[in-house]
């Protein structure tokens, strides 16, 4: 029986499928974008060496994920960091890795893996899209309450004994006991005291 390493060595190459596409060889990889779409890398010989590129697909994918349809400043900054880390060029929105003709076959294989990793990292920047709704701490508390099968209302307005209106995060009922819950979180330290005062009043 082969060792796991031997099995990986014997089979990992079959995960990359090559086919011709216009002036390129298309390498279909086992890497995927965050939505499951498969990442293709394109190889082409040029004078003095060869290149690997995504032919613009990663930025097309990234930009079409957002409400704005554009990259934001944070994404641009991180794209540049990833580009430098993996020594990529960007032209016409294509990420390109360039190699000279002295590059051996091992280098080609490792380069395909490296640009694949870079494209996965780049596509993961979609989580920074402005307009994307992120889960809040209150959402997480709601999940927790739901999992315990506790009946609850979330962020409803209730009128107190002094006729003042309150909006606790949760109103839960367990075995006839009613509990009002306010999740104590603040976006910065200076806001903690007013929130505590308001909840304790």
């Amino acid at each position: 029986m082969n060792s796991p390493c031997q099995e990986i060595a014997d089979n990992i190459g079959t995960l990359f499928i090559c086919s011709e596409f216009k002036y390129f060889i298309k390498i279909t990889t086992p890497f995927i974008y965050p939505d499951g779409d498969v990442i293709d890398i394109f190889y082409r010989r040029i004078e003095g060496g060869f290149i690997l590129t995504d032919l613009g697909e990663t930025l097309r994918w990234l930009e079409s994920q957002s409400v704005s349809g554009m990259r934001n400043e944070k994404q641009k900054e991180l794209i540049e960091t990833i580009r430098l880390t993996h020594n990529l060029e960007v032209k016409r929105d294509m990420f390109i890795a360039r190699f000279n003709s002295n590059t051996n076959n091992t280098k080609l294989a490792s380069s395909v893996l490296e640009i694949g990793q870079a494209l996965v990292r780049l596509s993961d920047l979609w989580v920074l899209q402005i307009g994307r709704k992120n889960k809040t701490i209150i959402d997480s508390v709601e999940d927790f309450i739901k999992n315990l099968n506790i009946s609850y209302e979330r962020e409803q307005v209730y009128t107190g004994g002094t006729d003042r209106n309150w909006r606790p995060h949760f109103y839960t009922t367990v075995k006839g006991n009613n509990v009002l819950t306010h999740v104590l979180n603040a976006d910065n330290k200076s806001n903690t005291k007013p929130i505590l005062c308001m909840v304790n009043t």
Partner: peptide
């Protein structure tokens, strides 16, 4: 160049695609 096409129905409030068509690239579930 790649002749790859995507249509996405995006929900503005959650900022996510709720329905879409991709053409020209494989997908893995």
């Amino acid at each position: 160049y790649l002749e790859r096409l995507s249509y996405k129905v995006i929900h503005k409030e959650i900022g996510r695609r709720i329905y879409g068509l991709d053409m020209g690239k494989e997908h893995r579930n």
